[in-house]
Computed example of a mutant assay.
Amino acid sequence: RLEAVLRVACGQRYLRVVARLRRCHPISKSAALEVSMASQLVKARTLLADWQQALRDIKDARRQRDAAKVQELLALWRFAEDEPGVVEATADLLQWAQASCDLVPSLSSASERKDVPSLAAALEEIALRGPRDVDGVESARLMLSRYRDQERHLKVALASRSSRQLAQVVRTWEFEETHVDYIAACHLLQEHQSAVAELRRLVGKAAGASCAAALRAAAGELRAAVLAWHFADDRE
C-alpha cells in the first residue's frame, strides 16, 4: 500500500501540489512546505526500502527454515497480516511447529533405541517438513555419522580378515546386533579363534609325538591346517 501511495505521490500529483503552493503562498512559506513534503516523501521511501529488505530477509529465513529468525523479523516489523510474504511465513511457522510436535518424539525414541532406519527416516522427514533447528537433530546426526563410520570399519575388517581389526570393530560396535556385517564379523572372529586353537593343538601334538610315524602324521595335519588358514597374518 505504501508503495502504491508513493507512486502516486511522487508523480504528477506531487508536481501539481507544488505548483499550487507556489501560486497560493508566499515564496518563504511555499518553500518551507515543499521542504516538509520532500522530507516526508524521503522518510516514506526509506521506510518502504526497509520494509522491502525485511521481506527479503524473511524470505531468506524461510528458505533456510530458520523459524527463530522468521519470528524475530515478523515481531520487529509488524507487517500487515494480509501481506503475501507474511501470510506465507506464518503458514511456514505453523507447519514447522506441527512437524516438531509430530516428529520430535519419534526422533527421541529412535535415538534412545539407536534405531538407525527410524532415525534416518525421522531426520529426512524433519528436513522436508520441519524447521532447521529441532531439539535432538544435531545429536541424531552425530549418531548417524557414528553408525556409518562403524559400518565402514566393519566392512574393512571383514575384507582384511584381520583378527585384531575384527575384535576391535566387534568390541566398539554400538548398534543393532542383527546387522549383517556385525554378525559376519562375529562369526569370522569365532572361526579365527577356533582355527588358532586347532593350530596350537596340532603343534602340541607334533611336539609330543612319540615316534617318527606319529610325528609324520601330526606334521601332515599341521601342514593341512596351515594351508587352510585364511586369515591375515596377526602373528598368533
Score class of each variant (00 low, 15 high):
F175V: 03
R16N: 12
D60K: 08
H153F: 09
P117F: 06
L199D: 03
E176K: 08
Q52T: 13
L76E: 15
F79C: 00
A54N: 05
R56G: 03
R56L: 09
L48N: 03
F79D: 01
L227A: 12
R200I: 13
H230P: 04
Q53H: 14
R63F: 15
C101M: 08
A110V: 07
G85Y: 03
A68Q: 11
A89W: 06
R78D: 07
A121M: 09
V170R: 06
P84R: 01
R65N: 07
A89P: 03
A9I: 10
L48C: 06
D181K: 06
A197I: 08
S210I: 12
R13L: 15
E176R: 12
Q150P: 01
S162K: 07
L48H: 02
Y14H: 11
A207Y: 05
R152D: 09
A44G: 11
D82W: 04
A206M: 14
V180C: 13
E236L: 06
L41M: 15
A99P: 10
E236N: 12
S106V: 10
A38Y: 14
L202M: 10
S162C: 04
E176S: 14
R65E: 00
A228C: 12
V42H: 09
E125Q: 12
G136V: 06
A122F: 08
A195Y: 08
Y147C: 03
L73A: 01
A110M: 07
A219G: 06
V180T: 10
P26S: 13
A159P: 00
Y14F: 14
C24K: 10
E81D: 14
V226E: 14
T178P: 08
R200L: 14
S108C: 07
A214H: 11
D149L: 15
R22G: 04
A127C: 14
W96P: 00
A31G: 13
P84Y: 03
Q71V: 04
Q53Y: 07
D66A: 12
W77R: 01
C24P: 02
D50I: 11
V70H: 02
A167T: 05
E138L: 09
S160K: 07
Q165P: 02
G204Q: 12
Y182S: 10
E151S: 15
A99N: 14
S39V: 03
V169I: 02
T172N: 11
D82Y: 05
L142G: 09
V86F: 05
L2N: 00
T90R: 07
L119H: 07
A225I: 01
E34N: 09
V18N: 12
D115S: 11
E191R: 15
R63G: 03
L33W: 03
L55G: 05
R1Y: 06
W229N: 00
F231T: 03
K43F: 08
R132A: 04
A217Q: 08
L103C: 01
L6I: 07
S118V: 00
V226N: 07
R65S: 04
E221I: 03
L227G: 05
L103E: 01
A225R: 01
Q40N: 11
I126V: 00
E236F: 14
V170F: 09
A38C: 10
Q165N: 11
A75F: 06
R201Y: 11
A31N: 10
